[in-house]
Amino acid sequence: MKIYGYVDEGSAVEDINPSMLAEITVVATPEELRNIAAFLLLSASEMDDMGERFGHLHLADKQPEFRDSPHFVVVNSNLVRAGT
Rank of each mutant, 00 (worst) to 15 (best):
M47E: 10
G55I: 01
V80I: 11
E23V: 02
L33V: 12
E65R: 14
G5C: 04
G5D: 03
S69G: 01
V75T: 06
D15R: 14
E14W: 11
L40N: 12
E9C: 07
E23A: 10
I16R: 15
S11L: 14
E32R: 02
E9V: 09
G10E: 05
I24H: 05
D15K: 15
F72E: 04
G5H: 06
Y4G: 07
V13C: 07
E32K: 08
V74A: 07
G5P: 00
Y6E: 09
P18W: 09
I36H: 05
S69P: 01
L79D: 15
E31F: 04
R67A: 10
N78G: 11
F66A: 05
Y6C: 08
K2H: 09
E31I: 10
V7F: 12
F54E: 02
A37N: 13
G55F: 07
E9T: 13
A28F: 05
R34D: 14
A44K: 14
D49N: 11
Q63F: 10
E23W: 07
I36P: 01
D61L: 04
G5W: 00
F54V: 06
V7C: 06
P64F: 01
V26S: 06
A44I: 08
E46A: 03
I36S: 02
E9N: 15
A12P: 08
F66I: 06
A82E: 14
S11C: 03
D68G: 03
F66Q: 01
A12N: 12
A44N: 12
E46V: 04
E31M: 05
P70V: 08
K2R: 15
T25W: 00
N35H: 10
D48V: 03
M50D: 12
Y4V: 03
S45Y: 11
I16Q: 13
